[in-house]
């Protein structure tokens, strides 16, 4: 199931935790746990940091909704080497 999730993420694209949960037939909670596992095992890495630092200095920061909570995962070289 982890491999299935990794394959899904390897294709890129936008997902919500709910959409991934639906595809895998598990709860959102499980998806979160699997993502954490994949990160811990070195197959996924979170790309980029928190929005706060990036939005500092932007005049629209106070009113901007661009920085809605989101996470971007990139597959690590380790995952790529495994053919994902």
């Amino acid at each position: 199931m982890l491999e299935k999730l990794l394959k899904r993420l390897a294709d890129g694209g936008a997902h919500t935790p709910e959409s991934l949960a639906r595809e895998l037939g598990v709860s959102r909670d499980m998806v979160e746990r699997m993502l954490a596992d994949l990160e811990r095992l070195g197959y996924l890495e979170a790309a980029g940091g928190a929005c706060e630092s990036k939005c500092a200095g932007c005049p629209s920061a106070a009113v901007c909704a661009v920085g809605t909570p989101q996470r971007v995962w990139a597959l690590t070289d380790k995952a790529r080497r495994k053919g994902f």
Binding site: A62, P69, R71
Partner: peptide, 27 residues
């Protein structure tokens, strides 16, 4: 390059006049 993008979709809620007003005012 491929990155996967996992988004938290916020719950819909009633728009707040003050927030919108602030946004319009600043822009």
């Amino acid at each position: 390059e491929h990155v996967a993008f996992i988004m938290e979709l916020p719950l819909y809620h009633k728009p707040n006049a003050r927030t919108i007003g602030l946004s319009v005012w600043q822009r």
